[in-house]
Amino acid sequence: MADLRDRKRQRAREKIVEAAFALFAERGFADVTVTEIAERAEVGRTTFFRYFGDKQEVVFADEQGLLDEMTAHQRSLGMVSTKDVVVALRQLRPTVLALCEAITKDEKHYVVHEQLLERNPELHDRSVGKLQHYTETVEGVLIDRGTPREVAVLAAQLALGCFHAGRRLAGLDPTKLVGEVDAAFERVVGKR
């Protein structure tokens, strides 16, 4: 029974996200209300707020899943402790590239998401904070492996910088993100 309930909750959450992104693509973020999202998703406002604190959070609906996936990926790589920033950054590269692949899997969703961040300063600012949270999580994985804090912090921040650079260079083209981020890493640490 719990399985069925969980599936229903997941479907309701997905319907809210789909409805919100469709409305945002049609009319822009500022011109869409929570009520309209709930109506399009065929759920009540109470259901909307059960899953999301506000309409901004819908834009980042995938965050926890991506964070969990990224952390699991990083832990699965069998990295070793290092005092060398370049080695630590090379260890982070596959995880950042996997994250890029995950966020561009649904190309249409990625484009709408990036346009929302580009056109809405409040969403851009929230995105920066969320990316910093990802970075601190990866930093923690490195530290847990015995990497000195100063190396882990620098490597994680440089990895974030490679992501930002690649993202800017890729623009709104999801097919270019992985390549541009990988090229940014290559410019910093050399070939794989």
Rank of each mutant, 00 (worst) to 15 (best):
L66H: 14
V151D: 07
E107N: 01
D144I: 01
H164N: 12
S127H: 15
Q132C: 01
A183F: 04
R167H: 14
L23G: 06
R168G: 12
C100Y: 03
F24T: 14
R168W: 12
S127I: 00
G179R: 05
R7A: 13
A88T: 08
P148I: 02
L142D: 03
A72V: 11
H133P: 00
Y51D: 07
Q56H: 11
K108H: 14
G161E: 01
E101M: 09
T137I: 07
E26K: 15
E136H: 15
R50Q: 10
A98T: 07
A2T: 15
F163M: 04
H133S: 13
V128W: 08
V189Y: 00
E39S: 08
G78M: 06
D144Y: 01
D106Y: 07
K108A: 14
G166M: 08
E150K: 10
H164M: 12
T71R: 12
L154Q: 12
H164S: 05
G44K: 06
A183C: 02
R40E: 11
D182M: 03
A165W: 02
V80Y: 00
C100I: 14
T82N: 05
K83A: 12
T147C: 10
E114R: 15
V32L: 11
D173F: 04
A72L: 14
V188R: 03
D68G: 02
R45Y: 02
V178K: 13
T46M: 10
L66N: 05
E69K: 08
C162V: 10
V32F: 05
V59I: 14
A156P: 10
T47Y: 05
L89G: 05
Y134S: 03
D106N: 15
F185C: 04
T47S: 06
T47F: 07
Q157Y: 09
H124V: 03
S127A: 15
I103E: 13
D106F: 02
R9Q: 15
L154F: 06
R93E: 05
E180V: 04
T147D: 00
Q10S: 06
D54V: 01
D173L: 00
G161Q: 09
H109Q: 13
H73K: 12
V96I: 15
E36T: 14
H164E: 06
K83D: 13
K108L: 11
A12F: 08
V153M: 09
A159T: 01
L177C: 03
G28S: 07
E57G: 08
E180N: 11
E26N: 09
R27N: 09
L117E: 03
A183H: 11
A12L: 13
K176S: 11
E101C: 03
G171T: 10
K8M: 07
S76I: 03
L23R: 09
F48E: 10
R50I: 04
E101N: 11
E42V: 02
R5T: 11
A152M: 13
R93T: 00
